[in-house]
Write a protein that binds this DNA or RNA. Structure first.
Lengths: 115, 115
DNA sequence: CCCATACGCAACCTCCTGGTTGTGTATTGA
DNA sequence: TCAATACACAACCAGGAGGTTGCGTATGGG
């Protein structure tokens, strides 16, 4: 059991959710999902945190694949990456519908007992 | 800016994602989404971790609202809670479609330049 | 050409997380 | 009734996460 394929997917999924599990990073995702690639300094504007802190958060998002960084001259810009979001969404959808199925079967069983 | 309402939603969302950002907890979610409420010992069966470790993970899931624990005699059973999953899913959907809109507007702009 | 800008890297700190062990308590079943 | 079961609570530990400061380096505009 627990084939490498499954383990790898589990690990990737956990790292995506972990990356999203921080308020600062959710705000960054909000900014990036909302427009074109932006530099670190730009993303740090208006934040209470330092530029280095923001840079660290961006690296976390990048390692999880949620964001893609590229150097452009003296600044490095980060862009939103939609795929992992869709993957995570489809996982949540599967979990929810799995639960719905359980409820449906339970309801059927209970109604069966009542008759 | 940053009204309390928004802050609270942000915090709740982050805690949900953070709770999902761990392989052990993803496995627990998998088990619970898949059947009826189960006791801690039951959920710890077959795991390399101790029962106490599993209990801690369940508390994390519970604090995030992903799971609901209830005492039944000498055992405490944990049940799947679908709402936060649907909420998280709809958030991811909003982020993705926001990005799609950005791309659409960009495409329009580029095609406009070409003409 | 030169200074301000935008970084990266590294050391360092604190606090939280994931995990264990140990102990005490309630519940259950024989 | 009494031992095994199932748990909660607490102390403790190592390591990682989030954050800062300091410093060195490349890039770009005036």
């Amino acid at each position: 059991m627990s084939r490498p394929r499954i383990r790898a997917e589990l690990e990737a999924r956990a790292s995506v959710f972990a990356a999203l599990g921080d308020e600062t990073r959710l705000l960054l995702v909000g900014k990036l999902s909302n427009g074109l690639p932006q530099s670190i300094s730009r993303l740090a504007e208006g934040s209470a945190l330092t530029r280095q802190a923001i840079a660290k958060h961006l690296r976390v998002l990048e390692r999880a694949g949620l964001v893609r960084g590229m150097r452009a001259g003296r600044e490095s810009r980060f862009a939103f990456t939609p795929e992992p979001f869709k993957e995570a969404q489809s996982y949540l959808e599967r979990v929810s519908s799995q639960w719905d199925d359980v409820l449906a079967r339970l309801k059927f069983f209970v109604e069966d007992e009542e008759s």
